[in-house]
Design a protein around this nucleic acid. Structure first.
Lengths: 177, 177
DNA sequence: CCGAACATGTAACCTGTTACATGATTAC
DNA sequence: GTAATCATGTAACAGGTTACATGTTCGG
């Protein structure tokens, strides 16, 4: 059977199943704590997604008697199947994704020289400090998130490399090794 | 002044201004012809976006008298400013974006061995054939789109590399050089 | 006792999707 | 003449966003 999960839905399932998020709140937290800004981890996305998937039998909720209003979440077998399918789904898993840097890559030559130079340097600086931050962050992570961050670092370094190749003058090699 | 364009809006402006799309239809075409599946280039996205930006003074439409119902599009000075701002916008331009491969990277170990092996090989095959396709495509492109496709190829090759490092047995080095 | 963190949820909104509708022009 | 391409648009829907609303538990 085909399930057709969105990227967020798949991510939610994997948070529950592979990263030990027991509650919707923890799932939200994981998204908010994640270094990428792609998902806000808004309750307006997470709670409806979990309700949808509960209603279609992918998630089971157990309302804890003892505690405050807390649902403990777990995947059903159907949910596990859907998640595995989502991980492997080839036309999704191989797509190049939405990359703002890439989208802009060919537009730099069309900027006025000053704006371009300043922009390229600002981008370079941002990326460098993000890489630094990601490296530190790396230590604290479980394997699932670690792989993601590792790939983020590789991506950012590729971007720096690309900048150095295409805009050596604007970036400035002076002082570097 | 701050304009806060979406990624699609910025892309539309750059199609008009830097890639010579005269009509909304051509903008749509460009998105549809682009190898990445991220945007459908649906008229339901493009036409409203152009109307929005026309109403806020970023685009000017000139209804061609002679022809059928055809609007020739061009950016206003305000539109050019907004586009340049969008290109340079650092917290956007440096974000790692939404990458389905990366999102799934840490989940492979959790799949049943057979599913995983089959999945990894399928992903590898898909990526390899996409790279091949992209390389051929490259010849036919203007510089703006070419830079994007070049970065897509680099990304896909990084992914293959990553697979080879993390899943050598599943991918299989035998027969390769 | 008070603030921070935990926990769930809704409402209004925005922007994208697919599918549909219409018609003109061009190439064969 | 008819099929493909060019061209514009709308309607219903889906899935996100921010902002708001509410209440509990725990640490100091």
């Amino acid at each position: 059977m085909q399930y057709g999960l969105t990227e967020l839905e798949g991510a939610v399932l994997s948070e529950i199943h592979h990263r030990g998020a027991l509650t919707a709140f923890k799932v939200r937290k994981a998204f908010q704590d994640s270094p990428s800004i792609e998902w806000s981890g808004s309750s307006g996305a997470v709670y409806p997604a979990i309700r949808r998937m509960t209603e279609s039998g992918l998630i089971q909720e157990k309302l804890m008697a003892q505690a405050r209003k807390v649902n403990h979440l777990a995947l059903t077998q159907t949910g596990i199947d859907a998640l595995n399918q989502w991980i492997v789904a080839p036309q999704r898993a191989t797509s190049v994704g939405l990359d703002p840097f890439r989208l802009r890559a060919g537009l730099w030559p069309h900027l006025p020289a000053e704006v371009r130079k300043e922009g390229l340097q600002r981008v370079k600086g941002e990326i460098e400090s993000e890489v630094e931050h990601l490296r530190a962050y790396l230590e604290t992570l479980d394997l699932v998130e670690r792989r993601r961050v590792e790939l983020s670092i590789i991506l950012q370094e590729t971007r720096l490399q690309w900048q150095a190749v295409h805009w050596p003058d604007e970036i400035g090699f002076d002082g570097g090794q």
